[in-house]
């Protein structure tokens, strides 16, 4: 559901810019925050706030890779596999993550916990290889530090789950 508050934030955004349309990208981020990915309701809300058609919003949304069109995992791991990271053996990290999580790059684990993506240069080439978890950088990766990271993420997910049960 897109809350009334979210819709209000979208409308306010249109006031920030010399032209309302400039608020499309930030409004799509709000829609994604609300529902985890871009749903048809999200597109509709953005379209109403900005005053352009739903198709128009969708055409913008599909151009940019940071909008999800399916629900992503709770932890989205993006491993850079561009040239500087390649020279520092990011492929080994990526393959290790594929094995450990039991999914290929581009996939989400069946329990909905992890999405693994191979992405392009994350502007962190001096600390390669690198990845981001939900937007946060983890740099100078080794197989060991990658394992430690997944252990930690597993623990976080487990804690969340038992919290939810209480």
């Amino acid at each position: 559901m897109i809350s009334e508050h979210a819709k209000q934030r979208m409308r306010e955004l249109t006031q920030r810019y010399p032209a309302a349309r400039s608020a499309v990208l930030p409004a799509l981020y709000i829609a994604q925050e609300e529902e985890g990915y871009i749903t048809s309701e999200g597109l509709q809300a953005v379209s109403e706030a900005i005053g352009i058609t739903v198709d128009d919003v969708e055409s913008v949304a599909t151009f940019y890779t940071m909008y999800f069109h399916q629900p992503p995992g709770k932890k989205v791991i993006k491993v850079c596999n561009s040239i500087s990271c390649y020279l520092r053996n990011c492929d080994a990290v990526l393959e290790h993550l594929e094995q450990r999580l039991g999914i290929k790059r581009g996939e989400t684990t069946p329990d909905g916990n992890y999405t693994l993506q191979a992405v392009e240069c994350l502007a962190s080439c001096g600390t390669a290889p690198v990845l981001q978890v939900n937007g946060e950088f983890v740099e100078n990766l080794t197989i060991e530090s990658t394992d430690a990271l997944v252990d930690q993420l597993d623990a976080e997910l487990k804690a969340k789950k038992s919290e939810a049960r209480l």
Binding site: S22, V24, L25, Y67
Partner: peptide, 20 residues
């Protein structure tokens, strides 16, 4: 929101104006 081409200045302006 994720598109290398938006670093090209004219694409950047398109993006800032709310388009592809």
């Amino acid at each position: 929101a994720g598109a290398y081409i938006c670093g090209e200045e004219s694409a950047l302006m398109e993006s800032l104006e709310g388009r592809r």
